[in-house]
Design a protein around this nucleic acid. Structure first.
Lengths: 229, 229, 229, 229
DNA sequence: AATGAATGAGCTTTCATTCAT
DNA sequence: TATGAATGAAAGCTCATTCAT
């Protein structure tokens, strides 16, 4: 076996590895710097410094500053969505399955505080936000929709299993998203690392059962809350 | 009476009026421009153009660009909080009172879309957000806390009235904030002007009663939802 | 007369004067710097330094670096064309009139060595030149055509007066342009300030009578100069 | 004979061939790219792409970007000068010999439009031009002088043969150069491929006999054209 | 020797802020 | 006090050159 054939495959392989190495280093650095300084406050120099590479190298991997942000959000958001999505190993009753999804999601948030900082900053969880939309343009909508779709799928599963009130899934999904976002923000704001499982359980409990007293007499919930207005 | 004494009181009064006129014009222009372009994308020139004044004039009323943002957020946030806070004329049962507060808040959002765009962009409803904190610094926390306190006050009222589950008010407030934020974002994202009262009723319903089916048998909600898992 | 009306006219007038002052200072500085370093070698900083103003000021008067070049070439080329064009005071016989035009043109070259350096560098006298066309684009053609038209007008006058051989004016104009360019380049290359009038006379003499011996016997020029040899 | 001695002579020979192959490929690519984009607008990457080699390879053959230009100009200019120089096979009468030289030169221009674009751009035919001198430095003068010397030699031959007016050869050479340059530029500007022989004949005719009418009575050319003014 | 990614100095351009009128 | 041009620090991006493979 000639090593010329090796060269043809080995060299490119090494190159590809190196390429991925640099790309990831840049994204990691960007995640950190964007989180601390915001997109506009972050200089390419800062990112390069953090990744211990030269400015030009960043531009060998990304056309413009914005593209670094795009790539970062895309990669991490896909990971996040994977966590939010029900897994085969999740227990069946919807409430428990939902709790598992929320736990994983909060764990992901906790593990990727920087990303969440950035994502919030970019209105990734709130679309049309000004500076976000001016940076992300259509991409923001794309990202946002992916997340929304995942949330809707989850809610639809709950509806089909009969665990959720039979109603328009859009507000149901929106409410779930709102609660998760609240908890995430709460976690980001605090230094402490709370008991995520308890946090998730509480969240699911509030989502499913509401904040009101259970024993309010004669509450005619499921029939006509919507209809009567 | 000599007109010199008049001058001393009348002149300043007129001046103050003029001053306020300019100040408000600047803030209105800033609200619009920040909403469309984001804080960083907005140039003082743009704001001045929109207010049909000169750049220098902006600096006669505000020390720096950031101060325009601060002032804008402060003014509007106070208005928003006034709307969120229960009014003497609101009906007593907590659910209805809460609904009134939410309606007013959503109306305010609808009436001040631009402000909300800006506020979201600044993480005003999510504190520690990166670019926000780098612009707003301590002010952001201040603003955020004011809002949080109002929310907490509202929740505490619900607890005292017995309408809310007896539990830590912090997650209760957080959940309410999350739901309101979700609806607000939903409204900003859509062009349509939905039926705000219905939206608010649904929100309060979900908040108080949850998204789960009411008729789950034998649900011992308040005691041990958490404990049993 | 109130001075408020004065203000309205005086202030703008002063401003316009100042504006023109700055603009000219920038063009003068650019002329010098472009001549010494070429367009690409010249940094905006250099031009600003030379004009003893700030970099930003250059951009208050010109959108981009290229526009400085455009403006410079336009202004000077128009002046140059004015010099090349016959004047009412020029003597009538074509040869003398032409000599006057050439003298004025060479004087202009001598007085604006820097501009000529730049113009040559931009292929202003040679159109389609590479870096020129990439900087000047259509403008180069425009400028070039203006000069060519002037040259053609001059030649046509000569044809009508019967002083020039009856033939296609295009090569006649091209030849005249070539001779003037040669002399100009010669002047730019030398430090000495030659006798411009003698230079011009020689140029016109060569143009009209050619470099060949006059006393070639029985020269039947127009018919068959080529055929007989 | 040992093949070690072979290796010493054969191997280098092949290497030299390969080396020359690459070198020429680079120069050809550079000629094209410089012509289209100008020296400053051309990136080494562009040249490498055009030559279908890697950037690094260019640097294995030339120390710096400028050296590519130098080499290109040197090679082509020598070729051009060979064409301008009288050949043993050229007919003797000066006018015809000159015409042959001009025909060859114009043919060369036509065949190497790209080079001419570059050469003009570099002021190769006009020395001291700004960006040219800043790139080419002394080399430009060298190149220019070589061309000038050839032109002077040609003119001197004309003087000795009695075909040219007895006068300072410098302006004679300058005028000839000016006319050739004019025609070259004219050719570059047009898409059409004119009849080069006719073009050359006309050029020589104008050079030798001038643009003036032949039949002007009593023209006292050689004596005192200069003196009388 | 050929390759092509890494490097980083350098440049154009922007825009918050100042200041003379 | 309103004005708007002047200011210059700062940042994104380019590209000649280097160097490990």
């Amino acid at each position: 076996m000639s090593n010329s054939s090796d060269r043809r495959t080995t060299l490119p392989r090494r190159r590809d590895e190196a390429k991925a190495l640099f790309r990831n280093a840049i994204l990691d650095a960007a995640e950190h710097v964007f989180a601390k300084q915001g997109f506009h406050g972050a200089r390419i120099q800062d990112i390069a410094d953090h990744a211990r590479i030269a400015v030009g190298t960043v531009y060998n991997h990304f056309e413009q500053k914005e593209d670094v942000l795009h790539a970062l959000l895309e990669v991490r958001l896909d990971q996040m969505i994977d966590n939010l999505r029900p897994q085969p190993t999740d227990p069946e009753p919807f409430e428990q399955k939902l709790t598992c999804c929320v736990i994983r999601t909060l764990q992901f948030v906790e593990a990727h505080r920087d990303f969440h900082q950035v994502a919030l900053d970019c209105g990734l969880f709130a679309k049309g936000t000004a500076s976000a939309s001016s940076i992300l343009k259509d991409k923001a909508v794309e990202h946002f929709e992916k997340l929304r779709a995942t949330m809707l799928a989850l809610v639809n599963e709950g509806l089909q299993s009969g665990a959720l009130r039979p109603m328009d899934p859009v507000p149901l999904a929106r409410a779930l998203g709102g609660l998760i976002r609240s908890s995430s923000i709460g976690m980001l704001m605090e230094q402490s690392h709370p008991d995520l499982e308890a946090e998730a359980s509480l969240l699911v409990d509030l989502y499913l059962n509401g904040a009101g007293r259970a024993d309010r007499t004669g509450r005619p919930r499921d029939e006509n809350d919507l209809g009567e207005r």
